[in-house]
Write a protein that binds this DNA or RNA. Structure first.
Lengths: 222, 222
DNA sequence: TAGATTGTTAATCGATTAACAATC
DNA sequence: TAGATTGTTAATCGATTAACAATC
């Protein structure tokens, strides 16, 4: 199962999108697809699709294309979503609850084992069958439930301290929604979702689109 | 104000992170910083920092470095967060409410003008001073309130139809949390936040970290 | 077989890093 | 002035695209 050499980050980040499109093709009842057809749907080059997939082995067949169902399964395996991942959510606010309520995660092997908060008014509540617990019992819970992943949906002020506790309790990965970078050992994975940064990128693009429009206006006038 | 040539996407995506670090430096009372010091903090090369910033002009001074406050202000200007952006949220579920509750957005010029939902039990409720409205009045509201940005926190099944309505009503940008790609005209900006894809990337990295650990174990045994 | 389409090598393009002259 | 550090050019590295031989 060990992949030969390091796969580039750019390739990995495209895999979930391939997976999504293949799922849609399956829903449409499409059994096979060529890199060219997929390229047209996804608006990426066919060359890139073939290159990306060939990082993991030859999933296609000359003259035929790719079998949708087979490729879908293979990408799931590559991404590791054919296995079960036990997950907890730290911070039972709106964002934490939004994640808890997203049923598709469970379909892809992410089992939400528990939620944690410091707010005593939330502790004991149950969200989609998941109990909100006191953060005091965090470490024991991680060990007892073989928790691999923690979603961190708490304010940035508390994030570093909680991250340290998670690492010491043996967590494998942190899905970090706090607006700060986390310092963790090399063997702990951190995937950041910085919503405010995403919104700033949006803002930049809106403004430069606006600038462009104005520039074109001016050119017309001249 | 028009920037000379197209700035690369990679550069833009790093700007909000620079902005965050500069904000932290200001909080620490640090007045100036060299690309080298910043490089150590942010774990990127000093060369990259200087290259990135020079896309927008010379903000530094030889022998001195960069003035933190000045650079902070300039990046804000580049990102367009020195101006006001009117924003609405479509979908008043947990995710929509999480965004509405995030006060920092308003600090950066993103004014949440309204929320919309189809659920009659939510309509009329007020979240952080923002009323949840019926989606029937969407178009008129956008025009009346000069709304530029719509955050789309609804299921993917409804997303394309709502996106069309937003575009027709003259929206400038969609912050898309629905798990689907949107087809919009070239002059409408779409910034995707696909949480399930983020979680899959995390899964991949957890698994390949695991594989690596096992490979090393095996090597030791041999 | 002929046609289609992959897998893969080579060419191009872009982004990152290194180096250093300019200059505060 | 001497030292520090930028702005910027050149070198390197990596990612994307093009091309085509292999093969179903």
């Amino acid at each position: 199962m060990t992949e030969e050499r390091q796969i580039s980050k750019a390739v990995i980040s495209r895999l979930p999108r391939y997976y999504r499109y293949l799922g849609e093709l399956m829903e449409e009842g499409i059994e096979r697809i060529s890199s060219n057809e997929l390229s047209a749907r996804m608006k990426v080059t066919a060359s890139q699709i073939r290159q990306d997939l060939n990082n993991f082995g030859g999933f296609g067949q000359q003259g035929y294309g790719y079998n949708v169902k087979y490729l879908y399964t293979e990408i799931a395996r590559i991404l590791g979503i054919d296995r079960q991942h036990n997950l907890i959510i730290i911070g039972a606010g709106n964002l934490g609850q939004a994640i808890a309520n997203y049923t598709n995660f469970e379909k892809r092997g992410f089992m939400i084992k528990g939620m944690f908060d410091i707010n005593p008014r939330l502790i004991g509540l149950v969200v989609r069958g998941v109990e909100i617990r006191s953060i005091d019992n965090l470490e024991q819970f991680i060990v007892d439930n073989e928790v691999q992943i923690a979603a961190l949906t708490i304010p940035k002020s508390k994030a570093p301290e909680i991250a340290d506790r998670l690492v010491r309790a043996g967590i494998k990965a942190i899905w970090n929604f706090a607006h700060t970078d986390l310092n963790v050992p090399d063997d702990v994975v951190v995937e950041n979702v910085h919503l405010s940064e995403s919104l700033m990128r949006l803002s930049y693009r809106v403004c430069s689109m606006q600038d462009e429009r104005e520039r074109k206006e001016r050119e017309k006038t001249v």
